[in-house]
Design a protein around this nucleic acid. Structure first.
Length: 864
RNA sequence: GCCGAGGUGGCGGAAUCGGUAGACGCGCUAGCUUCAGGAGCUAGUGUCCGCAAGGGCGUAUGGGUUCAAAUCCCUUCCUCGGUACCA
């Protein structure tokens, strides 16, 4: 079948001319048509087909609109189209993570309201996202700065409060002294902890904050058995949670002239086996008992140290390998296992927030304790040794290795036990006297959600000023949402304008009706992203945040795509939220995302993150204007493995554009002849029309087989490469007598279907022309079924087999596929090249590898 | 430091249940063609020796296992990402 008649003209040389591939004309036309036909609005009620919830991380409307957004979104869209062609009911929603600090900084710097700045960016991004030709279901769009969205953040917060999952406490927070704003933890970068925007080192400030008790779920969050996520993310989350099994041990404080005794110091240790090696104790400077236990003669020095430690944490605690500091407080503790008196110190290398804020120091077996003991001349006593070490040789450094061979030494009646057994028995022994118990420590802390900024969700909290018994009062559900006021004055200092907005600030206490003040902090924007995929399923529901039935039908999300940089933030919070919501009965699944794929990040040409301030932003509009969306989509997929990303280098985009031009040519003008090609119109050497058709058919079906697998496995780069190969092959047969024949026509049809998910516009255009040329009514290529490859067409009769001699390829033979090993050996040994190399030697062995794919003849060398 | 990923042509990258290294594309070279364009086509292009046929070498480094190693094991080096005294 030829589809060229209406669009080609002949000339005297027999060369045909077709109209040029003009993406900028084609693409908007089809985008409009698709929207008109409502092709991508998902019927969530349709249960007749397999549901497929495909989610891509919703973008932050930063205004730095760059090629990176395309890199993230277009392969996801290709996947959506691919799944649709398999008959799935695909839901691919999109929305905007619309709260956040950049909007507020724009307000301060340029005197433009965050809402206006944000909505303007969203408008532009909507246009850009549409220009991708992506199949987002815009009906489900969610914008988080909309009160109809953030009211449910408030509602969730109230539920968390009721269930003890939200609480208020004093805590240190990262603060950028230049921007005069708090920073979210994720906005503090690098080893030296600097502000991501201005590079200023961040400092700590103590503020009263709201927390969510994510640590209630630490153990469950360590269980990944229900989800199929990349290993690096699971490792990162596991490390972040940092579960470590150990024991809590109780040391009594020794009575002396200042202390009556009776105080207890509780420590957490993962190495109870080293208890006999504890030669001193260290408390965090902030430890509650420091004040009480400090001896009068030590008081001045201790207070100075505590003050300095606090101040230091306010300035900058960045150098991790700085020298250890600390002071003794003039009191002793009693080692519960042997009654030994050991001195108590305070030092800032012990953290108040982990464990009990106190440690037993075992310098022989802990690097930090070792460094501390050396610095201050404290005793170092070895209590664990490898099997071949018997004595008390002085240690050059802490011995921390943990092997099966280790034995306890210098450990009373536990001496000679294995370290593992001994440790357990020490705890069991102490437990009899209530001095120990097995416990588990976590590195993960509760999620601090307070932000001292304006552009976020207001907390539904009022501090009663009338009646102290009211205290902190939640705003009742029926008064939600607590609206973020729009008419506010931004301070150049960065201080939240909510603090000075009288209308917002002053309210009445919901409990007693007296005067009250609203909470002026707003919520971390990661709250917004912790449940947004549920909202997509019922974006306009006014009586509930989540349609539970719909969520049960569509969740967990089948496939989530997004950046790995969210490993221990969003991806952890989302899992926590889901579990908490499941416990409330709002959703049934305990995991949000069944499968996760982390695509890489496109960097600027300089290898740095793309941003306006760095001036390395690639504007997608410019490329789309020049090459069309299909070329840009395809180039981004072709660049390399999707999970890799890398510096932006547009050099090769012309090659992808040429590929689409060849597809255009081979489909519209199969009979054309290339004037520059001396072989034009002729078959490759030794082929006739029958062989040519068989070759075309085999290539098409082999391509179909492999391309299907490449889509499934997110290997878009090799998927495109295979389509290029097929196209090149078809170009080779262009103008021959089989061009436009049944095999050729089937191959171009398959080519278009395979290319359709990746390059939706050109394929739709060419498809419509094929239909028109065949006199058939239009229907979208994107509504076609994905074809099945013909198993009979992919098997070849002949196979080229490389022949190795001693592991080096010396020759190749073409043999029938079913040939026996013996026959193959005979063929191989008869070859001139092989005989020449073997030079009369007999084969010692002949290896047949890969089911007849390769032969290796092993001969002994004469030199032996 | 620790955890993770990774080092393959001039470039992006293929090939990893061990079995034809460099698919596909860019760039480059030569040629063809001409609605001179940022166009299309053909051939070549890892490296060294050679007119060629062919051969030597070659997947960060050094060693090992094997008939056979980019792929498996061990050494060392480098790059990127995460993390930061977590007891």
């Amino acid at each position: 079948m030829s589809v060229t008649t209406a669009h080609t003209t002949g000339d005297s040389t027999g060369r045909t001319r077709i109209e040029r591939y003009a993406p900028t004309e084609i693409e908007p036309r089809w985008q409009a048509r698709w929207a008109e036909q409502r092709l991508y609005e998902t019927d969530l009620e349709d249960t007749s087909r397999r549901r497929f919830y495909l989610l891509t991380m919703y973008p932050y409307p930063s205004g730095d609109l760059h090629i990176g957004h395309w890199y993230i979104k277009t392969p996801t869209d290709a996947l959506a189209r691919f799944r649709r062609m398999h008959g799935d009911n695909v839901f691919l929603p999109i929305g905007f993570d619309a709260f956040g600090l950049p909007a507020e900084n724009a307000a301060i710097a340029r005197n433009i309201h965050p809402r206006i700045w944000t909505m303007r960016n969203i408008e532009n991004m909507r246009r850009q996202l549409r220009s991708m030709g992506a199949t987002f279901d815009w009906n489900a769009e969610v914008v988080t700065c909309d009160p109809e969205y953030y009211r449910w953040n408030q509602w969730f917060f109230l539920r968390f409060l009721e269930q003890g999952l939200a609480y208020r406490a004093m805590a240190p927070v990262d603060w950028c002294p230049k921007d005069q704003v708090t920073l979210a933890r994720e906005q503090v970068e690098g080893a030296n902890r600097v502000c991501w925007r201005c590079g200023t080192p961040v400092i700590k400030r103590d503020l009263e904050q709201w927390f969510l008790r994510i640590t209630n779920y630490s153990d469950e969050l360590l269980d990944f058995s229900q989800i199929d996520w990349p290993e690096p993310i699971r490792v990162a989350q596991t490390n972040w949670i940092g579960r470590s099994e150990g024991a809590d041990l109780v040391f009594d404080v020794a009575a002396d002239e200042h202390q009556p005794g009776g105080d207890e110091l509780r420590v957490f240790t993962t190495r109870p086996d080293t208890l006999f090696g504890a030669t001193f104790m260290v408390l965090a400077p902030e430890h509650a008992l420091v004040e009480k236990l400090t001896a009068p003669e030590r008081r001045a020095e201790v207070e100075a140290y505590v003050f300095q430690a606090r101040r230091q944490s306010e300035i900058d605690r960045l150098s991790t390998d700085r020298e250890k500091t600390g002071v003794p407080i003039g009191a002793d503790a009693i080692n519960p296992i042997n009654g030994e008196r050991i001195p108590i110190w305070i030092a800032d290398y012990v953290l108040a927030g982990y464990g009990t804020g106190a440690i037993m120091a075992v310098p022989a077996h802990d690097e930090r304790d070792f460094a501390f003991a050396q610095r201050f001349g404290l005793p170092i006593r070895r209590v664990v040794a490898a099997a071949d070490i018997t004595g008390d040789e002085p240690l050059e450094s802490a011995y921390v290795a943990h092997t099966q061979d280790e034995r306890l030494v210098n450990s009373g009646r536990f001496t000679n036990m294995s370290a593992v057994d001994g440790g357990r028995q020490i705890v069991e022994e102490l437990a009899k006297h209530g001095k120990a118990k097995f416990t588990v420590g976590y590195r993960q802390r509760d999620w601090l959600i307070s932000r001292q900024r304006y552009w976020g969700t207001p907390f539904p909290i009022v501090y009663c000023e009338a009646d102290p018994s009211c205290g902190i009062v939640p705003v009742p559900d029926d008064q939600l949402p607590v609206i973020l006021p729009e008419n506010v004055d931004f301070k150049p200092t960065g201080e939240s304008p909510l603090k000075t907005n009288a209308e917002f600030l002053h309210t009445t206490c919901p409990k007693c009706g007296g005067p009250g003040r609203r909470e002026t902090d707003t919520m971390d924007t990661f709250i917004d992203s912790s449940w947004y995929w549920y909202r997509y399923l019922s974006p306009h529901a006014s009586d509930t945040p989540i349609d539970t039935d719909m969520a049960a039908r569509w969740c967990p999300v089948n496939q989530y795509t997004g950046g790995a940089e969210h490993a221990v933030m969003h991806l952890l919070y989302a899992r926590f939220f889901t579990k908490a919501l499941a416990d409330m009965g709002l959703v049934r699944e305990r995991e949000p995302f069944r499968k996760l794929f982390n695509q890489g990040q496109v960097l600027g040409a300089d290898g740095e993150r793309m941003s306006k301030s760095r001036g390395n932003v690639q504007d997608p509009d410019e490329l789309v204007g020049r090459y069309g969306a299909d070329t840009v989509r395809l180039f981004l997929m072709f660049m390399g493995p999707w999970d890799q990303g890398g510096p932006w280098n547009p050099t090769g985009i012309g090659g992808v554009h040429r590929f689409l031009n060849r597809v255009w040519t081979v489909v519209l003008d199969p009979h054309g002849l290339e004037p520059g090609d001396p072989e034009a119109g002729r078959f490759p050497a030794g082929q006739d029309a029958t062989a040519a058709e068989a070759a075309i058919r085999m290539a098409a079906h082999r391509t179909l087989r492999v391309v299907s697998e490449e889509y499934e496995g997110f290997r878009f780069n090799t998927m495109v490469a295979h389509l290029m190969e097929l196209t090149n092959l078809l170009m080779r047969y262009r103008g021959t007598e089989v061009a436009g024949g049944s095999a050729f026509d089937e191959a171009t049809r398959l080519l278009l279907l395979m290319l359709a998910p990746a390059a939706p516009h050109i394929t739709e255009e060419l498809w419509s022309r094929r239909l028109a040329a065949a006199g058939r009514a239009w229907s979208s290529i994107h509504a076609e079924r994905w074809p099945d490859f013909d198993a009979a067409a992919v098997v070849d009769e002949l196979r080229e087999v490389p022949i190795q001699v001693n592991g080096k390829v010396r020759d190749r033979v073409s043999v029938p596929v079913g040939i026996s090993q013996i026959e193959l050996e005979q063929v191989a040994l008869a070859r001139d090249r092989v005989r020449e190399i073997m030079a009369g030697r007999e084969p010692a062995r002949i290896i047949h590898a890969g089911g007849g794919r390769l032969v290796n003849i092993v001969v002994r060398d004469f030199k032996d």
